[in-house]
Amino acid sequence: MACYKYGYLHVAEVQLLPKKRRQPAERQVWACLLTAGAPLTWQCNTHIGALNAVGSQGWIAERGVQSATPERVHQAIVAKTGEALVSSISTQHFMRIRTA
């Protein structure tokens, strides 16, 4: 019998605050994988790049839906980026990976 581990992938746009007044704000795409453990966050070039990263590890992602960015995801991204403005809307993908 097949066993699966489940999780959610959230992909959000982030605007980094400039270190100097005259610098433009930098926009980045960040992904956050939520499973039973601690959230795993990383910067990616595009939304597709985030899906490719989890797909290469064996995760099967469902079609994404726009939803409010969960507070847990917001905190995980800010912890990695320092001061940043995280979009209030992210794309959420339900995912599973075969474990046995």
Rank of each mutant, 00 (worst) to 15 (best):
Q57C: 11
A12E: 03
G64C: 08
R96T: 12
V65L: 12
I60R: 14
A38N: 13
T91Q: 06
V14E: 09
V11D: 01
Y6S: 04
L33I: 01
C32T: 14
V78T: 14
K19T: 13
G49Q: 02
L34N: 02
S90P: 00
A12D: 01
A84D: 06
Q57A: 15
A36M: 04
L17V: 14
Q57P: 03
L33A: 06
A61V: 11
Y6G: 01
M1F: 06
R22G: 07
V86Q: 12
K20W: 04
R21E: 14
I89C: 09
R27L: 13
L33F: 13
L17G: 01
T69P: 11
V14N: 08
Q43Y: 00
L33W: 11
T81V: 14
A84I: 06
G64M: 00
E83R: 13
L17N: 08
T99M: 08
P39Y: 02
L17M: 10
Q66L: 12
T35Y: 07
G55F: 10
A79P: 00
Q66W: 12
A84M: 06
M95D: 05
T69C: 12
S67K: 13
P39I: 03
Q92T: 14
C3V: 11
V29Y: 01
L40Q: 10
L85G: 01
E83L: 15
A38K: 14
K19N: 07
S56L: 08
G55K: 02
E26Y: 04
I60H: 12
I77Y: 04
L33G: 01
S87N: 10
V14P: 03
M95E: 07
V54S: 04
Q23P: 01
V54W: 07
L34V: 03
K5V: 14
L34S: 02
W30Q: 02
K20H: 13
I89G: 03
P70Q: 12
T41R: 01
V14D: 09
K5D: 14
K19M: 11
R72F: 09
R63H: 14
V78G: 00
